[in-house]
């Protein structure tokens, strides 16, 4: 059960008319390390993980949908008023012929989203290590998108999202520590 709040987690401002940035941002929308993959990965893994960390996966998985919504808003703002000429100049005409200005779950190279992007192994440590890797990969993806963008307003939102990846990675690392469960026990082997 979810409760929806009709506002973005962080305000999205796009300062320049540069539809090419939408081509890069779509990686975080429907890419393997994007926000959709992250949300579905965590919310699915929660069923086969020890009780102590289910809540963490629920919370982070839910927040990933809030991030997905921010990315969607950025892409929509960048493309909604683009002329066919601007679409061509931005290199997103392949998307346009199939979807017009609609958003679609594919990565920056046009590969549609697939469940093969994510995994549930049923082994809690394996699953949490995948989640840590996913957060670090998403963090890196944000770095490369920011590097390609000179839009300070847009980068402000992307910086926020990158910082959240750092915090999520930290929390998954702490979840591993909880499951390792030897801390402070002074066990003698």
């Amino acid at each position: 059960m979810w409760i929806y709040e009709k506002k973005l987690q962080y305000p999205v401002r796009v300062g320049t008319c540069n539809p090419r940035l939408a081509k890069y941002l779509i990686e975080q929308y429907g890419g393997a390390d994007g926000e959709l993959s992250a949300a579905l990965r965590y919310l699915n893994q929660r069923y086969s993980i020890p009780d102590k960390v289910i809540g963490l996966l629920t919370d982070i998985g839910t927040e990933e949908f809030a991030h997905l919504e921010m990315i969607a808003t950025m892409i929509y703002k960048l493309t909604k008023d683009a002329t066919p000429e601007q679409i061509k100049a931005a290199g997103i005409e392949d998307h346009y012929v199939n979807h017009d200005k609609g958003l679609f779950y594919h990565n920056a190279a046009g590969t549609p989203w697939t469940a093969a992007f994510i995994q549930t192994k049923g082994d809690p440590i394996a699953d949490l290590y995948e989640d840590i890797a996913a957060e670090e990969k998403a963090r890196a993806t944000y770095q490369w998108i920011i590097n390609l963008s000179d839009d300070t307003d847009l980068n402000d939102g992307l910086r926020f999202l990158r910082e959240r990846e750092i915090v999520h990675s930290q929390r998954f690392r702490e979840a591993v520590e909880i499951l390792k469960d030897e801390q402070g026990k002074k066990k003698i082997f």
């Binding site: 944000y142 770095q143 920011i146 590097n147 390609l148 963008s149 000179d150 300070t152 980068n155 910086r159 990158r162 910082e163 750092i166 915090v167 930290q170």
Partner: peptide, 11 residues
């Protein structure tokens, strides 16, 4: 302690 902002070389 977790704050680590990333800036573009174009900014």
């Amino acid at each position: 302690a977790f704050y680590d902002p990333w800036f573009s070389p174009l900014e």
